[in-house]
């Protein structure tokens, strides 16, 4: 089966700055794929190359098997992009903008019913005849999603769709993205909210300084963290802890102590034994598995050779 997105040895530089250094990976059909990375990692450049908004210096990008340069018409028809910035044409209202966008992709009146459906699905029905400049940021974001979906693309890129939106809208957008995914769309999500990627994505690529520093399933990435945390609740807050436990303490507040344990070097059994020997009585033991944020920090900091992350 043809991959939804193929990125083959893509290089891009702006003057002396190398934005992408030989990026190479594939996104399968129907996948919910996360593209993460700190600011300036190259995420937007990569998405712009996929969308034909920027040209790569070397390498190739294919959408559903269509080269974004050679077969640009088919490639663009297969791709919908929700841009990061809240852009709009101040001359037109919401429905006019959607109809124009539909026309650019070669659709006529037969697509108007789908446009109306999109307006209803995204709760934009009562805003259809309103100019975009009167809408809130969240509403504008919904219109951009509708615009990206207007030509029914099989692959949808959501470039930081929840940046600056409130919790309620974020939930609506997540539900909509999940529904699209269930309907068979391939979704590529870039986000700064790692919790979002953790909740939605099946596979994740972490990009840093123009290179891929991790590409794996969410579960495999989460298991990469060498640390886990254990929160102990003590019966006596004043107890004196032995050195073997003190070196593991990350946070201590009244009766609660959070320990950071290395998966290989620090055994939970040994910690509990040491606690027992020093007379510390435990009321509760709670282990906390690492989140994507921790893995992200670990990978991006290690790549830069930074310490203390």
């Amino acid at each position: 089966m043809t991959s939804a997105v193929t990125i083959a040895e893509v290089h891009k530089h702006y003057g002396a700055l190398y934005a992408l250094r030989g990026i190479d990976f594939e996104i399968k059909q129907g996948e919910f794929f996360g593209l993460l990375g700190p600011n300036g990692a190259g995420k937007s450049t990569l998405i712009n190359i996929m969308a034909g908004l920027t040209y790569a210096d070397r390498g190739a990008v294919r959408i559903n098997g269509f080269d974004v340069r050679r077969d640009y018409r088919q490639a663009r028809r297969a791709l919908g992009v929700v841009p990061q910035e809240l852009v709009y044409d101040p001359f037109f209202d919401v429905r006019e903008m959607l109809r124009l966008q539909s026309g650019y992709f070669g659709f006529g009146r037969e697509n108007h019913a789908w446009i109306d459906e999109l307006l209803e699905t995204l709760n934009l029905g009562d805003k259809a005849d309103v100019n975009m400049y009167t809408l809130s940021g969240g509403m504008k974001r919904r219109v951009l999603i509708a615009q990206a979906m207007v030509h029914k693309p099989p692959v949808l890129v959501l470039d930081e769709p929840t940046a600056g939106v409130d919790v309620e809208l974020r939930q609506i957008l997540w539900r909509f993205a999940r529904r699209l995914h269930q309907d068979g769309h391939t979704i590529v999500l870039t986000t700064h909210y790692l919790e979002e990627a953790e909740q939605l994505c099946e596979r994740i690529a972490i990009l840093d300084q123009g290179s891929i520093c991790a590409l794996d399933t969410k579960q495999a990435l989460l298991s990469r963290s060498p640390y886990r945390r254990v929160r102990l609740t003590l019966a006596d807050a004043a107890i004196e802890l032995p050195e073997s436990i003190l070196r593991l303490v990350e946070e201590r507040e009244a009766q609660s102590i959070t320990l950071r344990l290395h998966r290989l070097d620090d055994q939970l059994g040994a910690v509990l034994e040491a606690m027992h020997q020093c007379g510390g009585r435990l009321l509760d033991v709670h282990t906390v598995e690492p989140g994507l944020e921790e893995v992200f920090m670990e990978l991006t900091c290690r790549k830069r050779g930074e310490v203390g992350c």
């Binding site: 841009p83 044409d89 650019y104």
Partner: peptide
């Protein structure tokens, strides 16, 4: 205006030669 507003992107994303 389209460049400054950023809405030129809508045309650039479309399959228009």
């Amino acid at each position: 205006q389209s460049k400054m507003n950023g809405n030129l992107v809508f045309v650039l994303l479309a399959p228009i030669s």
